[in-house]
Computed example of a mutant assay.
Amino acid sequence: MKNNHAHNKLLFFSLKGKALPVLCLLLIVVALSAYTNTDPIIPTGEYKLVYPANFGNRINVPADNPTTQQGVYLGRLLFYEKKLSATNTISCGSCHQQSKAFTDGRALSMGINNQLATRNSMSLANLLWARKFFWDGRANGLEEQATFPLTNPHEMGQAIGVSVKKLSNTKLYPGLFKIVYGDSTITGERIVKAISQFERTLISANSRYDQYLSGYYKPTADELKGMELFNRGPDPEKGIRGANCTHCHGGPKTYLELFHNNGLDSVSKDEGMAEFTGLITDRGRFKVPTLRNIALTAPYMHDGRFKTLDEVIDHYSEHIKQSVSLSAFLQNESNITGGRSLKLLPKEKKQLIAFLNMLTDDTFITDKRFADPHLTTKN
Rank of each mutant, 00 (worst) to 15 (best):
L128A: 01
E199Y: 01
V61L: 05
G175Y: 02
Q145M: 07
E143G: 03
V50L: 13
E271V: 00
F306N: 14
N60H: 13
Q145I: 01
N54Q: 12
I336Y: 07
P40F: 08
Q197N: 15
F286L: 02
S85K: 09
A194I: 01
P252I: 00
G226I: 00
L375G: 15
L127H: 05
G161I: 13
T376I: 09
Y181W: 10
Q69Y: 05
T147V: 10
R285Q: 10
L142C: 06
S121R: 02
S94K: 07
R340G: 11
P21Q: 13
T277D: 03
G175I: 08
E144Y: 01
L356H: 07
K253P: 02
S109W: 02
I203L: 06
L11N: 08
Y173Q: 05
M227K: 10
R131G: 09
F148V: 11
F55C: 01
F12P: 00
Y80D: 04
A205R: 06
N65T: 08
L296A: 07
Y35I: 04
K378N: 12
T360A: 14
V29K: 00
Y47A: 04
N88H: 08
K2C: 00
L32S: 08
P66K: 06
Q98G: 01
K2P: 01
H5C: 02
I42F: 13
N88C: 02
G278A: 03
E46L: 01
S163P: 00
E271C: 01
S327E: 05
S33C: 07
A130N: 15
T337M: 12
